[in-house]
Simulated assay, not measured.
Amino acid sequence: MSRSTFTLDDLKRILLEGSGAPEGDGLDGDVLDTEFTDIGYDSLALLETSSRIEREYGIELDESVVGEATTPRAFIAAVTGHLTVAAA
């Protein structure tokens, strides 16, 4: 399914689905600028999240997204950038 927006709620949902973590684990509060490692998500969790986003949104994320997007805000911006390009 292709979508045109990607929000913090979308990221939280996909992170939780992929990690199997209890609802809201590490994602409560203002986490936009918190490092993923500080909220309990490592590079493997982010790789799984990227794969799920690619399938759900019909886009292909650069490998650099996982390495460079170290906070939810940066990850959302990277996905939004890909959605914008895909929509053009």
Rank of each mutant, 00 (worst) to 15 (best):
I14D: 01
E48Q: 12
A69I: 02
E54Q: 08
G40D: 09
S43K: 01
L83D: 07
S2D: 09
G29F: 12
S4R: 07
L83E: 00
E63L: 10
G29W: 10
T71Q: 09
E63V: 03
A77V: 04
G24D: 14
R3M: 09
G58P: 01
R52C: 02
E48W: 00
A74F: 00
L11H: 05
A74E: 09
G29D: 14
V66I: 15
S4H: 01
L16T: 14
P72S: 10
F6R: 08
L44K: 04
R55T: 10
T7P: 08
T49A: 14
S51A: 15
Y41L: 04
I39S: 04
A88L: 13
D9P: 05
T49W: 11
S43Y: 01
A77W: 04
A69L: 02
R55N: 13
A86M: 04
L46C: 03
G40P: 06
R55V: 09
S64H: 10
A78W: 01
G20S: 11
E23F: 07
L46V: 07
L46T: 07
K12D: 11
I53E: 06
G81P: 04
G40T: 04
F6T: 07
R55W: 02
A69N: 02
T49M: 11
D10W: 04
V31H: 06
L46F: 08
E60Y: 01
D62H: 03
V31L: 02
Y41S: 02
I59F: 06
E56Q: 14
D38I: 06
I14L: 11
A45C: 10
G40W: 07
L16V: 09
R52K: 12
F36V: 03
G29K: 13
T70F: 00
A78L: 01
L15Y: 01
M1D: 06
T49H: 10
E60I: 06
D33W: 00
S2N: 12
L83I: 03
D33E: 14
Y41H: 05
T34G: 06
R73F: 03
L32P: 00
G40Q: 11
L27Y: 07
S4M: 02
S50R: 15
R3L: 07
L16I: 10
R3H: 10
T37W: 12
L15E: 03
A45M: 11
S19W: 03
A45L: 08
D28Y: 08
T37N: 13
I59M: 08
A77Q: 13
D9S: 15
G18Y: 01
T5Y: 07
S64A: 15
A77T: 12
E48M: 05
T80F: 00
L8K: 13
D38N: 15
A86Y: 04
A21I: 03
D10N: 12
V66R: 02
D42P: 01
